[in-house]
Amino acid sequence: MRSRVPRYAALLAALVSASPGLARAQATASSGGATIAVALDAARGLEPRARTEIVAVLDSARLAGLPADALSALASKVVEGINKGAAPDRIARVVHESYSAMRAAQSILGPDVAPGEIAAGAGALRAGLAGRDLQRIKLASRSRPATGALVVATDMINRGVPAADAVAAVVRLAESGADGEALLQLQSDVARDVAAGVAPRSAALERARVLSSRPRTPSSPASAGSPSPAIPQ
């Protein structure tokens, strides 16, 4: 493993110096993820009906103009399902649902999306967010990628926070200018509170309130990551 370090160093140096567009186009190759071709190849061993559906979905995705990272995420779903030993028709159904959700996210989030944003938006839609919620989160994120906010909102919904409150929490945080670190703090604080028995809605709203009221200073390593105090019950 240690012998891979020099190779990584060269690859990383290339990545760091690459232009954003090129970096995105290379997202698949550089991250080692699945491409459409890889997914099609992997699907070859599936039973015909499922395979046909998967091929059709991947083809539609390419024609629909989904960006490279979203195509990669969709292709990755196929590979993930196969490697996890899922039933072929389940894989086909998941890929189809994912594609539909990605198309919806694409239309809602618009053309100016960061890598991963469409996949994150698709996950949020599948978790129960409405299209207008995606728009709100995107707007609240301003020039920052909305990926993190979408993922955190989705995660909170999965812990029992009602969708409207999850959206309100991340929007509040995003509008306050909070960065990725604050979103991460929100996610981990809410997760901990819910596990401790705090009602999910209360946890999300209270943590967002506290975090959004913190003064925005250049990140200090000492404070980054330290958990917020428990909410008094």
């Binding site: 997202a27 991250s31 990755s76 890598p115 991963g116 996949a119 996950g123 993922v151 995660d155 999965n158």
Partner: peptide, 27 residues
């Protein structure tokens, strides 16, 4: 080396798939 984006992942530990057990649900 992972470029910008959103990724699903897990660990395989002694043949068993797992993620961070700190949190109960995945997206």
């Amino acid at each position: 080396p992972i470029s910008a984006g959103r990724y699903s992942y897990a660990f395989v530990v002694d043949g068993r798939w797992m993620a961070d057990p700190q949190s109960p649900r995945a997206p």
